[in-house]
Amino acid sequence: MPPRLAVPAAGMTRRQFGRFAALGLATGAGMIATVAPATAQTAADYYAQARELAGDNPVLLALIAALTKGYSPPRPAAPAPQKIFDDLAVLSVGSVSCLAILTSGGIVLIDALNSAAEAESVIAGGLSSLGADPATIKYVVVTHGHGDHYGGAQYLAGRYGARVLMAPADWNLIAGVPGAPARDLDITNGQRLTLGATTIQLCYTPGHTPGTVSPIFPVTWEGTRHMAMSWGGTNPPAALVSLRTYLTSVLSFRNRTRRAGVDVEVSTHPFVDYGLERMQQLRTQPRGANPFVLGQAGMDTYMAVMEAMLRGRLADAAGTTAAAAEAVAGDSCC
């Protein structure tokens, strides 16, 4: 019989979600959800554990769906540009978004959408509509080398002089690809990028691509400081070795989020985390509990769901029990 997890006392309904968002996904102060090491545990067991952790919470259910083999991403309509924190804006075409971190020294973008046209209309135009000057874009952090994340980067570099950052492995991945930005700055693992009074930590989380990067950065809401994260690349790879790399990245990044006190999650693919719906909630209820604030225990539950789903995917790919999934670099972290 597989070992059980530490599970939130109850899942939240969508109606309850707004009221409890600031308290975190896991009910009970300090509760930490974890996927316990196991022998002879099947992929189905891990998937069941992920669902048990999720309860009926729409954020976690969306994450489970996105990590399920064969998932087909939706193509939702583009939302209006929106600040989801005092210093964080979402500029989106619906299926993929750019995050704009607004600092005292200028703007740092996380990703750059699909194309120069979207960078001009959605990113620059969206910033202007929110009262931010796109001419102050200083950096574009590209989380990984796929065109829907780097497509507008070269336009932003040429138009505003923004510096473009990517991990070396993914600079190599896109070398010579039409529409890719010219190689600029390399991201090193754990690098701290400071602009104005804001410091962003850039963490290697390979697996989705060889050079996927996930940022951790501060945000404020109604005068309260929080720490946010954005997982750099969601869709798990098919190859067994890449799945092992991905799971190791989840374990490593989970420890980083714990140490940094991360309590906010936001994705550049909003279908992964119920993001568009949470944006709509903020539009209709602009004050009070921010639904992107999961709490530190809730954030750990989010990462635990990722871990369970990846262990299941790995066990599936290995065609064996989770004893194989457990042998992932000794579960070494960071």
Rank of each mutant, 00 (worst) to 15 (best):
G11N: 11
G11L: 12
R14I: 10
F17E: 05
R19N: 07
A21W: 00
L25T: 08
L25H: 11
T34R: 15
A40P: 00
D45E: 08
Y46S: 04
A48D: 13
P58G: 05
L60N: 03
K69S: 11
A80W: 05
K83W: 03
K83Y: 06
F85K: 02
L91F: 09
S92M: 08
S95N: 13
V96R: 08
I101M: 13
I107R: 06
L113T: 08
A124T: 03
D133A: 14
T136P: 04
A157D: 05
G158S: 13
R159A: 14
Y160E: 08
A162Y: 05
V164R: 00
I174T: 01
G176M: 11
A180E: 04
R183Y: 04
D184Q: 13
T194E: 14
L195H: 06
A197D: 15
Q201G: 14
C203A: 14
T209A: 07
T212G: 01
P215I: 11
F217T: 03
W221R: 00
E222N: 12
E222Y: 00
R225T: 14
R225M: 10
P236I: 05
R244A: 04
Y246K: 11
T248P: 00
L251H: 10
S252A: 14
P270F: 10
V272D: 11
Y274S: 13
Q280F: 06
L282F: 07
R287A: 13
G295M: 09
G298N: 07
M306K: 12
G312H: 00
R313G: 02
T320G: 07
T320K: 06
T321N: 14
A322K: 02
E326P: 03
C334M: 06
